[in-house]
C-alpha cells in the first residue's frame, strides 16, 4: 500500500515536472508559444433559425467585434489562454455581444528548423450571451476546447491558425460552435479570415439549425 502511494506521488511529480519544465520560455524564442494580440473582426452570417416549435426560417446579418487574446506560458509546456470579445450582432434580434473565455493550455509540440512552429492545445470554458442570437439574450456558460498551430518561416513573418470548439448544452437543445481562424502577419500586424459554424439541434421535430459566419480579421500582435 505504502509502495503504491510513493509510486503514485512520484508519477504526479514527474508529470508536473514535464509540464512545468525547467524554465519559462523566453520571449523572442522563434518557437515561443505565447501570443498576445488585439484585433477587430467583422463577419457576415447566414443560416437557419427556429421559429415557433420547430419551423426552419432562413436569416442573415452581420457581426462586428473587438477582441483581445492572451496566450501565455509561464512554464515550458503549460500555460493559459484567455480571450475577451465585445461587439454587435446585426440581425432581427440585433444586440450587444460579449464573451469571455479561458482555458488551460498545453504545448505538446514546438520545433525549430527552416520553419519554426508550435502546437497549442487547451481546455476550459467561457461565458457570454447565447449564440446564435435567435436562441435568446440570456447568458450562458460553456466548455471550450482549442487548438492553435503557429508557423514562423522567418522571424518577422508569422502564420497561425486556431480552432475553438464550444459544445454548449442548454436545457432546450444542443448547441455547438466551431470557430476557425487563419491568419498571416508581418512583424506586429496580421490579417486573416475567420469562420464559424453554430449548430443548434432542437425543436419539434428535432432538427439542425445551422448558421455560417465568415469575415476578415485584422490585428496587432503585442507579444
Amino acid at each position: 500500500m505504502r509502495r503504491r502511494f510513493i509510486g503514485g506521488a512520484a508519477g504526479v511529480l514527474t508529470l508536473a515536472c514535464i509540464l512545468t519544465g525547467s524554465a519559462p520560455a523566453r520571449a523572442g524564442d522563434p518557437s515561443h508559444v505565447a501570443l498576445w494580440r488585439m484585433e477587430v473582426h467583422g463577419a457576415y452570417l447566414q443560416g437557419d433559425q427556429r421559429v415557433g416549435a420547430g419551423t426552419l426560417v432562413p436569416y442573415n446579418g452581420w457581426g462586428l467585434w473587438a477582441r483581445v487574446g492572451i496566450s501565455e506560458f509561464p512554464w515550458k509546456w503549460l500555460g493559459y489562454d484567455v480571450l475577451g470579445q465585445i461587439g454587435l450582432v446585426g440581425t432581427p434580434q440585433s444586440n450587444f455581444d460579449v464573451v469571455t473565455e479561458a482555458a488551460v493550455a498545453f504545448a505538446p509540440a514546438r520545433w525549430k528548423g527552416s520553419v519554426d512552429g508550435s502546437i497549442v492545445l487547451g481546455a476550459g470554458g467561457g461565458i457570454g450571451f447565447e449564440r446564435p442570437v435567435w436562441l435568446g439574450r440570456g447568458g450562458t456558460g460553456y466548455p471550450l476546447l482549442l487548438a492553435r498551430l503557429t508557423l514562423k518561416p522567418k522571424n518577422s513573418i508569422r502564420f497561425f491558425t486556431s480552432f475553438r470548439f464550444t459544445p454548449i448544452t442548454p436545457d432546450d437543445g444542443w448547441v455547438r460552435s466551431y470557430d476557425l481562424e487563419i491568419t498571416g502577419g508581418y512583424k506586429w500586424w496580421y490579417l486573416g479570415l475567420r469562420g464559424r459554424i453554430d449548430d443548434v439541434t432542437q425543436g419539434d421535430p428535432e432538427r439542425l439549425y445551422r448558421t455560417y459566419w465568415l469575415g476578415p480579421t485584422a490585428g496587432l500582435v503585442l507579444r
Partner: peptide
C-alpha cells in the same frame, strides 16, 4: 444588415405544431 432571405415554402421545414 440583412436584406431578408426568402424562405423555401415547403411543409418539410414547418413543424406541425406551427
Amino acid at each position: 444588415a440583412g436584406c431578408g432571405l426568402d424562405p423555401d415554402r415547403v411543409s418539410e421545414l414547418v413543424s406541425t405544431r406551427d
